[in-house]
Design a protein around this nucleic acid. Structure first.
Length: 461
RNA sequence: GGCCCGUUCGUCUAGAGGCCUAGGACACCACCCUCUCAAGGUGGCGGCACGGGUUCGAAUCCCGUACGGGCUGCCA
């Protein structure tokens, strides 16, 4: 058990937060490069957050990101609730040594007293009552006078005046340990040397550091990274924002793209390179280089990264991946004709089905597209001429189809861009889409001609 | 309200006193390429929050102001 020990301690909430993903990745990069360990601990102290399947969800999300449970760097998962006895034992020790005391005030009583005294929060009113443990009573930490200095590798030294920290609860009225206590006891038990987490925990840190010291241990090295925010610059929340990693996965974002993008939020290697493989990120990442201000999670840029990663795939990889994003019933041969032309056009794989669906089902004509392409004078005659030329073609290939249309359009004095529009709308129903002649090739002669006939009929009718 | 943290193009960032006429990426605009749309190429738009210092010299150091964020729970 030598080497630095990092930990990732998410609380199970039913989905995996992208901000959590970034924190996990930061810890993973550090643990891997430094030859240490990445310890996964599920913080399920709050009984409302205790579902076995949620733990499985966390693990599969981590696996997707490349944080493999099979990697020797990985350790866990541990369940915080399994350590309840140790938490309570620590609480008892603190109570016996006088570092903590029992308090019988309910939240309502505290609010009343605070209002009456004109203060906010708990004023330490039970401090010297010498109460014993009892039903409904909470154990509170006796915050000492003085100040607490947190040495943070991201932010430097942060000093807190202890007088602004109230005597916080260690054990609830129902006898269960609270996060701050459990967190510290677990980190110590697991030999954690580095706590790297989001900035929202910075205010908790002096409390936890006091606990480490009260328990007679040396606190770990701290590192608080900035949070991820939405366009309103508020911390990403599951209520307002799309934060579930699983959702991005389902929409067809590549794990590599997500990982790479997440690592550019709040950190840069210092050069002009943004797209780089994890192996490089891992050797380059330094906590000391992490920025201090919140970063906006920009889905558009995520999309740009995803497109880059899609284009980096080999043709075989891309074709295989496409196969997974399309209905089982779709003809694979037909799909394979068009797929090579989709690689530079896709942002996410969930876009795939909608861009080639016209090849596997009836044409759905977009009326705006029809209007745009068919209102031209030449539309009908050109379509008719194309239809008869196509009908007699000996070879139904994209190349021949293109050359044929170029011949047909000559008397109309049009450019290909104009001339292809009516054909495109007749066959695909839309003005934009995959390359037309390859689409025709994939569709096949019979179906293509039928669609042109249908368009001609509508045009004359 | 109190405590803490922060502030470089719209966004993510480079920048650790002279290399900055502030660089890159996404987005946006234009042009090129082109069978539509993309992709690719070229170019463009656009920023050191503000005010004081310190210094020969400040985006970089100090102070103040403004603004933003986090925490302030018997959640984590």
């Amino acid at each position: 058990m030598s080497g630095p020990r990092f930990r990732f301690a998410p609380s199970p909430t039913g989905f995996f937060h992208v901000g959590g993903a970034r924190t996990a990745l930061f810890n993973w990069a550090l643990a891997r490069r430094l030859g240490g360990r990445f310890v996964l601990r599920i913080e399920d102290t709050d009984e409302a957050r205790n579902r076995p399947e949620w733990t499985e969800g966390i693990i599969s999300a981590l696996e997707w990101l490349g944080i493999s449970t099979a990697d020797p760097t990985f350790e866990g998962p541990y369940l915080q609730s399994d350590n309840a006895a140790a938490h309570l034992e620590a609480a008892r020790a603190l109570a016996e040594s006088g570092r903590a005391y029992w308090c019988a005030m309910t939240p309502e009583e505290i609010a009343e007293r605070a209002a009456a005294d004109g203060v906010t929060g708990y004023g330490g009113w039970s401090r010297d009552l010498g109460l014993d443990e009892g039903p409904g009573r909470v154990l509170r930490f006796r915050v000492p006078e003085g100040e607490t200095t947190v040495i943070d590798s991201v932010r430097g030294e942060v000093v807190f005046d202890n007088s602004v920290i109230e005597d916080f609860v260690l054990v609830r009225g129902n006898g269960t340990p609270v996060f701050n206590l459990a967190n510290v006891v677990d980190d110590h038990l697991m030999g954690i040397t580095h706590v790297v987490r989001a900035e929202e925990h910075l205010s908790n840190t002096p409390k936890q550091q006091m606990l480490w010291e009260a328990l007679g241990h040396t606190p770990p090295a701290w590192g608080h990274v900035p949070v991820l925010v939405n366009e309103q610059r508020k911390k990403l929340s599951k209520r307002r924002d799309k934060v579930a990693l699983e959702q991005y996965r389902e929409e067809g974002y590549l794990a590599e793209a997500m990982v790479n993008y997440l690592m550019t939020l709040g950190w840069s290697a210092g050069d002009d390179v943004e797209i780089r493989p994890w192996s490089e990120i891992e050797s380059l990442f330094r906590l000391e280089e992490v920025n201090l201000s919140p970063a906006f999670f920009d889905v558009r840029k995520l999309g740009a990264f995803n497109g880059e990663y899609i284009r980096m795939m080999t043709a075989e990889e891309f074709a295989a991946e496409c196969g997974r994003w399309v209905p089982e019933s779709w003809d694979r041969d037909r799909l394979s004709v068009i797929v090579p032309h989709l690689q530079p056009r896709l942002v996410t794989f969930s876009d795939l089905e909608g861009t080639v669906d016209f090849l596997f089902g009836p044409v759905v004509v977009d009326e705006a597209s029809w209007e745009k392409a068919m209102s031209a004078e030449f539309a009908s005659p050109l379509l008719a001429a194309t239809r008869s030329a196509y009908a007699g073609l000996p070879d139904w290939s994209a190349e021949v189809l293109k050359e044929t249309l170029e011949t047909v359009m000559e008397p109309f004095e049009l450019k290909l861009g104009k001339a292809q529009a009516p054909v495109r709308v007749a066959v695909t129903g839309r003005t934009v889409g995959p390359p037309l002649f390859e689409s025709l090739e994939a569709l096949g002669r019979a179906e293509s001609l039928d669609r042109i006939d249908a368009a001609l009929a509508r045009l004359s009718g």
